Computed example of a mutant assay.
Amino acid sequence: MTITSIMSRGEPIVRPRAARLAGDVRRAQIITAACQFFAENGFSGPTRDLAASIGVTQALLYRYFDSKTDLIDAVFAEVFREHWSVGALERFEASAGAPMVDRVAEVYGHMLPRMTPTATRLFFRAGLDAYAEPIYRSASKSLPLWNAMLAEWRREEGLPTLAGKPMLEGERMLMIALHNAMTMIRVREHVFRTPRWLSDADEIRQISETQDAGIRVVLRRLHAGEASERRCAIAHNPSLEAA
């Protein structure tokens, strides 16, 4: 890093200036810094402040990104490069025959450690700043796992297969509620920063037991026609409302 001196009221001000880097290296540096910057400041944070934190000019940022939206898209592309759901479906399928409580706990015990503080805060910021697209993309990555779990719960409860009766709206909400209950472990830790008294394993297990019992009750009601028509409507867009 080099030093640039300018005069202000007769006194020199020394500012750090980032060293020259190759284009792909500089772009990667900007994305890495932007992940942290937007996680801490939200997506309304000025790009000039982001540039200053790296030691480059705002104009340089826009040599690599056409707009702030383009930069935000690159940030989420980095987050999705190794999404926390990678390998989760395979783990669930490999545990076939075990109790559902154990299988759900195993899957989320694998997923939650992959939710880093920066990634967790970025997704929370996305919701607060009405930047919905990454939330939809993340949910679409989790959907195959949700389908597999729901299919197993239906099988154990003697209900129709998903091939015979597609996911109901009420079922979609059950899967989202399960996922949100699990991810709130990380939100409380990385966003709210509240004290935790249970280990990941204990908390995941407790949520698995609670959700398993409740999901079975509601599934039977949904398929028995006891729920409202709205809750039993086929979910046309099951990728919404969860990270």
Rank of each mutant, 00 (worst) to 15 (best):
H110D: 14
A227C: 15
A119D: 07
D102I: 00
A34D: 06
K165C: 01
E78G: 01
I6R: 15
H110N: 14
P144L: 04
L174W: 12
N180P: 05
R114A: 13
S67H: 12
P144G: 03
R26I: 03
I185R: 07
S138L: 13
R231S: 15
E169H: 13
K165Q: 01
L222E: 07
T183N: 04
D73N: 03
E156L: 14
A163F: 03
A181V: 07
A34Y: 09
G127C: 13
T183L: 08
E106G: 02
E93W: 02
R196D: 06
P134A: 00
T4I: 14
R188E: 12
M175T: 14
R103D: 02
G55V: 13
E241M: 10
M184P: 01
I6N: 13
Q36H: 04
P12E: 10
T194E: 14
P195G: 08
R196L: 06
S44T: 15
D73Q: 08
T116F: 06
F123M: 08
F92I: 11
L89G: 13
M182C: 04
R125Y: 02
R63F: 03
N147P: 01
A132D: 15
I3N: 09
A213E: 13
E157F: 08
E209F: 04
R63M: 09
N180W: 01
I54F: 02
T32C: 00
N180R: 09
L198D: 10
L222R: 03
P99D: 10
A242V: 15
D200S: 01
Y64E: 06
S8Y: 13
K68Q: 12
V187A: 05
G87P: 14
T2K: 02
T2A: 04
F80D: 14
P113H: 03
S95G: 11
D212Q: 00
L174G: 12
A126R: 01
S95K: 07
D70E: 11
Y64M: 00
L128S: 07
A181D: 02
G170H: 02
F92M: 15
A227N: 14
D202F: 02
A94Y: 06
A98D: 11
P12L: 14
V218I: 05
A235Q: 00
R48M: 04
F192G: 07
R221P: 11
K68I: 09
T161G: 10
S85A: 07
T116R: 10
A139I: 06
E241W: 13
L178E: 11
A96E: 14
W84G: 10
D202A: 07
E157H: 09
E82I: 10
Y108W: 10
E203W: 09
K68N: 11
I135E: 03
E11Q: 15
S138I: 12
D102W: 00
P195E: 09
F123Q: 10
P166I: 03
A34P: 10
G127P: 14
P134Q: 06
